[in-house]
Nucleic acid binder design. Structure first.
Lengths: 245, 245
DNA sequence: GAGTGGTCTAGACCACGAG
DNA sequence: TCGTGGTCTAGACCACTCA
């Protein structure tokens, strides 16, 4: 069936995890035990572990063990669904903590925002957790010249959509949104903050919101593990014609 | 600087490739030579090679060697840019070959298209190449009940946008488009057709086009290596208000 | 047949975490 | 201190490609 040794092991481990033999939050047997169990060398066992780690099934912690990851649902990034209340239909195990910080624009962020390097910005950091495991990170930048908003205390969405509502309440109206999606490997820092493997695909979403004066009022950099993320866009040809008219 | 041995090696190889010391299309030194050069064991060398392979810098061919990949530009999937002519502004080294095939809908495709399982479809296969290296794959399904189109002979886009123009010419008008983007690891088959490593992040775009009668007229499954792909979406709040009115 | 990459082994040493 | 995972080594055998 499975040709490669490590494929056979990862298939078997995957089955155990999906069936619940190895429960979420608990460690699977130590690598030494797996070596005996599958009569394989350590590198072979570790290749199998790396595979299922990159699939989002495992969190490996140095000195502690290899733990079954809690399986959150898919985080859907959807511009069409303007959910009024982030709390609605939210799993209570899903937690998003928001922190607020004042910084100065570095060159890359400044270029996108269209402000001088060193301009004062507010950085909102949305860190999403599902039980004990992290699953999302969003950094949102709003120039002080545009608005200074309070960080939402509760019901924050993982992708920071609520900032745009807050902007609207502050009298800043978004007219156009440009979104860019890429798929890439995580940086070393991202492997830590998202608790993913170095080989786990990652989805990065960059959202730029513009107001009527073509001023960039918000830049969002959202980073999600590929195994629990999708982005959905709906486009109506009708509205394009209306716009042209 | 570099703590890990394999990181040091991959950094060095990456530098050589980007500087052009190792030219595109040519093989880098054999693994045995790299072992001597960096005084490292084979597994260590191979981890370094896997890393830069997953970044899209290397194509490894069993029995032949490890070749520097030609660097195509980024393939941008952009719904907003309706390029009338695919030939315009296309690098001549970029080739897209299209083949046409008649099949029957399997259950997953049938469910999305909203047709019975076993319905007759046309499958258009867009395979993109940059010089000798593949870089894109798009499979597009159109039910026979909707239209039977000729495969475009030239100037095809990597993402198969021209099918929708062909539909329009055939009197089938797309009113709404739903696009879904995910980031994941490639299947074994995809590693071969795209010549990417098993650990290379991949962007999959699913596009569903709907006509005025809410009939699905086209399903596109576009698969691109993450290292050379991005998806861009532009959304205007203004049109949303127009639509509501 | 010679050279290449693909897979696996057995074992060593180090770094981290918890008691 | 001990058990865990993180890294690396030296070497073997196999599979593929090309002359």
């Amino acid at each position: 069936m499975a040709q490669n040794r490590h494929v056979h092991i990862s298939n078997d481990l995957r089955r155990h995890i999906k069936r619940g033999t190895y429960a979420p939050g608990t460690p699977i047997p130590a690598e030494s035990a797996l070596m005996e169990q599958y009569r394989a060398s350590r590198p072979t066992v570790r290749i199998a572990l790396a595979q299922i780690e990159n699939e989002g099934l495992l969190i490996r912690i140095h000195g502690r063990g290899n733990f079954v990851r809690h399986q959150p649902g898919i985080v859907t990034y959807d511009t069409a669904s303007h959910v009024a209340d982030g709390c609605a239909a939210m799993d209570t195990a899903l937690q998003v903590s928001v922190s607020k910080r004042t910084t100065k624009a570095k060159d890359d962020v400044a270029a996108i925002l269209g402000v001088p390097v060193g301009s004062v910005l507010t950085e909102y950091r949305y860190q999403g957790h599902y039980l004990t495991d992290p699953y999302s990170l969003a950094l949102i930048y709003v120039p002080h010249a545009v608005a200074v908003l309070e960080a939402p205390t509760h019901c924050a969405t993982p992708t920071g959509e609520d900032i745009r509502e807050a902007l609207s309440r502050a009298g800043v109206h978004v007219v156009e949104t440009r979104t860019r999606v890429v798929s890439r490997l995580p940086s070393q820092e991202e492997t830590k903050t998202l608790a993913i493997g170095a080989g786990a695909p990652l989805m990065e979403i960059r959202r730029v919101s513009v107001d009527a004066e073509s001023r960039v009022v918000e830049l969002a950099r959202i980073v999600l593990p590929g195994f629990s993320a999708e982005a959905v866009f709906t486009e109506s040809t009708r509205t394009r014609e209306l716009e042209a008219a």
